[in-house]
Amino acid sequence: MLEACQLRYAFHTQPPLFEEVSLRLGAGEWVGLSGHSGAGKSTLGRLLAGYDEPTAGHVRIAGQRLPVKGLRPVQWLPQSPELAVNPRWQVARVLHEAWEPPEALRHAFGIKPEWLNRPVRTLSGGELQRICVLRALAPGVRYLIADEISTMLDPITQLALWQALKAEAEKRKLGVLVISHDAALLGRLCQRRYHLENARLHAAEHHQLP
């Protein structure tokens, strides 16, 4: 269980971006998070993954603090894959930064062997995003924060990415927080949904699609 208790986040002395935010993400659970731009969805995602410290409150994983060193059990996946990879590296080096995914998994994510020796800038956004998602699935990772990872993708590429991730997440009982504007997408993917509005987090009405 990934738990956030009474999180509050403020830049310096400005009014807080959000406060009294508590949420829970269980193992194997898919939960949506929606809200306007600037409401702090990304910041909340980064707090949950331990990229930033909340001004108040805490994030616990199975009752423990997030570890500071080593592979973190919560991984954050940002919107633009171009910024999430070192532009000077080759695809293989990026993919293998934390672990070496087995060939079957590479195939399931549609990563072609001939990409591996190419520089990352020769791949398209959709191809790169799949590399980033697979990179984050190292053994020991139990939760994913997927921050708008498919907004830049066309429908077919988006579908393929989610299908591959869904299959792997089910196998490993990964908990996934899907941050998106797209209510229909959240309906397809998630069991329940939170909505961030006016600096507070609410459990939102959710229509799960089959």
Partner: peptide
């Protein structure tokens, strides 16, 4: 492309 949309068949 049309069918892959979340509002359609996904």
């Amino acid at each position: 492309l049309w069918q892959a949309l979340p509002d359609n068949a996904f």
